[in-house]
Nucleic acid binder design. Structure first.
Length: 511
RNA sequence: GCUCCGUUCGUCUAGGGGUCAGGACGCCAGGUUUUCAUCCUGGUAACACGGGUUCAAAUCCCGUACGGAGUACCA
C-alpha cells in the first residue's frame, strides 16, 4: 500500500467549529495510526466569504488541541502551496483540460438567466436535460464561443455529467453508496472570477498532494458523486483517495446540527477558542476559556461518533491513535453531551500532576486576586483538584484560600454553632496559636486533644472550624487547609468567625 | 419536492442470527468522609413501527414513520 496522506481542509470563513476540530482529530488519529502524514490545506477560493484572522484561528486551535501538522501553510512541505488562493493558476489549467477532453464546457448564462430558469421550473437543474437549452459551448458554434471568450464575456466552466452512469462510492464508514449520474447537475468548476469551486480545487489538490484518504463531514457525501466523476474525467481513478464521511455533531436538545447559536443559548462552548467577531453575537468563548483541558476536549470529541469497542473511555492522544479505526466510526449523528464533556474534564484535572495544574490555574487566580506564591498554589491545587470540573472552579470553589471570608453559610451556622460552646472554642484559638508545628498531622493531634479535654464531639468542632475558615460546609480536609493557610491567617479567621457566629445567633434571638 | 444517509436506555454507545441486550454520562438510593468532592455498592432506563425470511431476528430483506444532509458562480 502506498503512503498514507490525509488532509484537513477548512475554509477560513470564521472560527473553526467544534465539528471541524473533530474532523481534524479523526484525520490526525488516522494519520498517526498508519504512520502517515497530516496536512492542513486552506480552502479559500471564495473571496466573498474570506474572514481575516480565520486562518490564524485554525492554526491556533489545532496547536492548542495538540494536533500537530506535518505539512501546511507556514509549515511547508513538498506539495505546497497549501492555500488554494495561491494555486489559482493551476485550477484554470485543469479546467481547460476538462473542456479540451470533452468533460466540461463553457457556460455564459448570467445569474439572471439562472434565476429565471429556476423561477420557471421549480426543480430546475443545470444538467443533462437542460444544458441543451442554455447559453453554453454545447449549444453555440465554436466561432461564437471563441468570440465571446475573446471579448472577455463572463463565463464559467461546468462539468459535463455523462448520461446513464452509475457511480458507486465505497465509503469506509458508510459502506456502498450509489448515485445515478442522471440525477446529478452540471456543477460549476471554474467560477466567473477565475477561481475554482470547491469541487474542482478539492480534486485537483487531493490528487496533486497525493492524498490517500479523504475524511470529512457527512455534508460532503452527496457531492462525492461529482468528485468521482471528476477523478474519472481526469483519468485519475486509479489513485482516487478512499472516502470516509463522518456523522454530524447534533444539538444537545431538539433537532439539527450543533450551531453557534446553541452555544449562546445553552451556555456551552461550541468552538475550541474564543473568537472576537466584532459584534456581541459573533463573539464568544471556546473550550479553552470555559476551562477545558485540550486533552479532555479531544477525548470527548473522539467519542462523539466513534468508540474503540472496549470499555476504556479515558485515552491519551497516543492511546487514541493506537486504537483508532475508521471502520468503527458510527453512521448516525451524535448529540453534543455537555455533561459528558465536563466529566471527561474532571477526570483529566484529577489526573494532572500539581505542577501542571499550577500552570493552568495561575492565570485564573491572577485575574481574580493578583500574584500568589507558587508553593502555596501547588498546595492549593493539590487540595482542590478533586473538587473542580472546569478550571475556573478552582477560583469559584476555592477563593477563600486567597481572600478573607466575606460570606458565611448562615443556615449552617444556625444549625452548627452552639453559643454555649463559644467560650471553649475561643479558648482553643489560643492553643492553636501556641502550636509549634503547623503541619496537618500536628494540627489534627491538637484538635483531637482539645475535643477530648473539653468533651466536645467532632460534629461541633469540625463544622465550626470549617465555617469560620471558609464560610461554607464544602471543601478539603480542615487540617490540610489550616496547614496551608498558615497559623496567622487561621487564628485571625477563627477569631473573626467565632465572634461573627455569636453575634449572628444573638441577633436571631432578639428577632 | 427530488437525491443520498441514518434510527439500541434521556445522552454517548457495545452487540452484526440463539446475550438475563453490556458499559459510560446523567439521575436516584446506600456506604466511606468532620463537610463537599473523590471512591465503592446498588437502582432507573433502550432494540422506532409494520410485514416478511428463519427452528430462532435488535441483528438479514421490504415497507412505513421519524430524523439528518445535499440540492449556489459557498465550502
Amino acid at each position: 500500500m502506498s503512503k498514507i496522506r490525509v488532509r484537513f481542509a477548512p475554509s477560513p470563513t470564521g472560527a473553526l467549529h467544534i465539528g471541524g476540530v473533530r474532523t481534524a482529530l479523526y484525520n490526525y488519529l488516522f494519520a498517526k495510526k498508519e504512520g502517515g502524514t497530516f496536512i492542513l490545506r486552506i480552502e479559500d477560493t471564495d473571496q466573498t466569504r474570506y474572514v481575516p484572522g480565520a486562518e490564524k484561528y485554525i492554526m491556533e486551535a489545532l496547536e492548542w488541541a495538540g494536533l500537530k501538522l506535518d505539512e501546511g501553510p507556514g509549515i511547508g512541505g513538498e506539495h505546497g502551496p497549501y492555500r488554494q488562493s495561491e494555486r489559482k493558476a493551476l485550477y484554470g489549467e485543469y479546467a481547460k483540460k476538462l473542456v479540451d477532453s470533452g468533460h466540461a464546457y463553457y457556460a455564459f448564462d448570467t445569474p439572471e438567466d439562472l434565476a429565471k430558469a429556476r423561477e420557471e421550473h421549480p426543480n430546475f437543474k443545470y444538467g443533462i436535460m437542460t444544458r441543451i437549452v442554455m447559453k453554453n459551448s454545447l449549444t453555440m458554434s465554436a466561432e461564437e464561443v471563441q468570440q465571446k471568450l475573446d471579448a472577455g464575456e463572463p463565463s464559467v466552466i461546468r462539468l459535463k455529467v455523462p448520461a446513464d452512469e452509475a457511480i458507486l462510492i465505497n465509503d469506509i464508514v458508510r459502506g456502498e453508496v450509489t448515485f445515478q449520474s442522471n440525477e446529478l447537475d452540471d456543477k460549476v468548476m471554474l467560477k466567473g472570477d477565475g477561481m475554482p469551486t470547491y469541487h474542482l480545487a478539492n480534486i485537483v489538490d487531493d490528487h496533486l498532494m497525493e492524498i490517500s484518504h479523504v475524511i470529512r463531514g457527512e455534508e460532503w457525501l452527496t457531492s462525492t458523486a461529482h468528485h468521482v466523476l471528476l477523478y474519472r474525467a481526469f483519468g485519475w481513478e486509479d489513485t482516487m483517495p478512499k472516502f470516509s464521511h463522518l456523522p454530524l455533531i447534533l444539538k444537545p436538545t431538539g433537532k439539527g446540527k450543533l450551531s453557534k447559536r446553541d452555544g449562546a443559548k445553552l451556555g456551552i462552548p461550541v468552538f475550541p477558542l474564543s473568537w472576537d467577531g466584532g459584534t456581541p453575537e459573533n463573539t464568544f468563548d471556546g473550550f479553552r476559556e470555559f476551562g477545558f483541558l485540550p486533552e479532555a476536549m479531544l477525548n470527548f470529541l473522539a467519542f462523539l461518533g466513534w468508540n474503540p469497542g472496549t470499555e476504556q473511555e479515558i485515552f491519551t492522544k497516543e492511546e487514541l491513535a493506537a486504537v483508532f479505526d475508521l471502520e468503527k466510526v458510527g453512521k448516525s449523528g451524535a448529540k453534543f453531551d455537555y455533561d459528558k464533556a465536563k466529566w471527561f474534564n474532571q477526570q483529566y484535572i484529577m489526573e494532572k500532576d500539581d505542577d501542571a495544574l499550577v500552570e493552568m490555574v495561575t492565570p485564573i487566580i491572577k485575574e481574580h486576586h493578583g500574584e500568589v506564591d507558587a508553593d502555596f498554589l501547588k498546595g492549593f491545587v493539590g487540595l482542590m483538584k478533586e473538587r473542580a470540573t472546569l478550571l475556573p472552579d478552582f477560583w469559584t470553589a476555592g477563593s477563600y484560600f486567597f481572600k478573607d471570608v466575606e460570606e458565611f453559610d448562615l443556615k449552617s451556622i444556625r444549625k452548627r454553632w452552639k453559643p454555649e460552646n463559644s467560650p471553649k472554642m475561643k479558648a482553643f484559638i489560643g492553643a492553636i496559636n501556641g502550636l509549634e508545628n503547623f503541619d496537618a498531622a500536628s494540627i489534627e493531634t491538637a484538635i483531637h486533644a482539645f475535643m477530648e479535654k473539653e468533651e466536645l464531639g467532632m460534629g461541633v468542632v469540625m463544622p465550626a472550624l470549617r465555617l469560620a475558615l471558609t464560610g461554607t460546609m464544602k471543601g478539603p480536609s480542615v487540617f490540610d487547609m489550616m496547614s496551608l493557610l498558615g497559623k496567622q491567617r487561621v487564628v485571625e479567621r477563627l477569631e473573626k468567625g467565632f465572634q461573627y457566629f455569636d453575634d449572628y445567633k444573638a441577633s436571631l434571638d432578639q428577632a
